[in-house]
Simulated assay, not measured.
Amino acid sequence: MPDEPTLGEIARRFEDRLSDVRDDIAQLGRRLDEKVDQKVYDLRHEALASRVTTLETLREKDAEKIVATRRWLIGAVVMPLMSVLLPVIIMIVRGSGA
């Protein structure tokens, strides 16, 4: 009989297990309180997708502006400058070669 637990020991063990179960239930309750509702998650996901789409559109517009600016620079600045300097360079090269 000395190996068998006493009623006091059984009660203490039962109380320990009961407090563990209570702690686990409380922890589950806290985790459930922190959980985001599916509808809220979906709304946030849609808003984020919309922002990404908007940013991609703005980036494409900016890229188009850069291309347009380069074309304008070449057409309005570089080409007239070359049309003025090219005859001068040709005259200098022909004049020095004669």
Rank of each mutant, 00 (worst) to 15 (best):
M1Q: 14
P2D: 15
E4K: 12
E4G: 03
P5C: 03
L7E: 11
L7P: 00
E9S: 09
E9Y: 01
E9W: 01
E9I: 03
I10E: 05
A11H: 05
A11F: 05
D16Y: 01
R17I: 04
L18Q: 09
L18N: 08
S19E: 15
D20C: 01
V21Y: 00
R22S: 01
I25E: 03
I25H: 00
A26M: 07
Q27C: 04
L28P: 00
L28F: 09
R30L: 07
R30P: 01
R31N: 10
R31A: 05
R31Y: 04
L32Q: 09
L32W: 04
L32I: 05
L32T: 04
L32H: 06
D33L: 15
E34D: 15
E34R: 11
K35S: 11
K35W: 03
V36I: 10
K39N: 15
K39F: 07
V40Y: 04
V40D: 09
V40T: 13
V40S: 08
Y41A: 15
D42S: 14
D42F: 09
D42G: 08
H45T: 13
H45K: 15
A47F: 09
L48E: 07
L48R: 08
A49K: 14
S50N: 09
R51T: 05
R51N: 10
V52C: 02
V52K: 09
V52F: 02
T54P: 01
L55T: 06
E56V: 03
E56Q: 12
T57R: 07
L58M: 05
L58P: 00
R59D: 05
E60A: 11
K61H: 08
K61C: 02
A63C: 06
A63G: 06
E64V: 04
K65D: 13
I66E: 13
R70N: 13
R71W: 04
I74P: 00
I74S: 11
I74T: 11
I74A: 11
G75D: 15
A76C: 13
V78G: 04
V78H: 09
M79V: 13
L81P: 00
L81F: 14
M82S: 14
V84T: 10
L85F: 13
L85R: 10
L86D: 11
P87I: 02
V88D: 04
V88W: 06
I89D: 08
I90G: 06
I90C: 13
M91H: 10
I92S: 07
I92D: 08
I92E: 10
I92H: 04
R94T: 05
G95E: 00
S96W: 11
G97C: 04
A98I: 04
A98T: 05
